[in-house]
């Protein structure tokens, strides 16, 4: 079992997350795809940490999880207030910041 297998797997998961962010228009599913991408990076960090015997990678995963929790709380609050104003979560119709 080489480290390459874990890295390939995380690359594939990251790509699926990118497809979700670009192709889907539902804000909640875009948000879940972002979580998927964060997790694929976490897998890379844990793989390197285990193979190099260095704890720093797992520490970084710990902090990434904290940031992901904060991001989920804030992002979902933004989605709720957007939905309250526009009655939609379709990203194509949310263009109030567009010039």
């Amino acid at each position: 079992m080489g480290i390459q297998l874990y890295l390939y797997l995380s690359a594939i998961l990251f790509m699926i997350g990118v497809v979700g962010v670009i192709a889907r228009r539902n804000a909640i599913i875009v948000f879940m795809s972002i979580e998927l991408m964060l997790n694929s990076v976490n897998l890379t960090l844990v793989a390197f940490s285990a193979f190099l015997g260095d704890v720093t990678g797992q520490m970084l995963v710990f902090f990434v999880m904290t940031v992901a929790a904060a991001e989920a709380a804030i992002g979902l609050a933004i989605i709720i207030s957007l939905f309250r104003n526009k009655q939609t979560v379709n990203l194509d119709e949310i263009n109030i910041l567009k010039w």
Binding site: I16, G20, A23, S33
Partner: peptide
């Protein structure tokens, strides 16, 4: 994991 990720993105 790859299968569930694909299903997640397409549902």
């Amino acid at each position: 994991s790859v299968g569930s990720a694909l299903l997640m993105v397409t549902r």
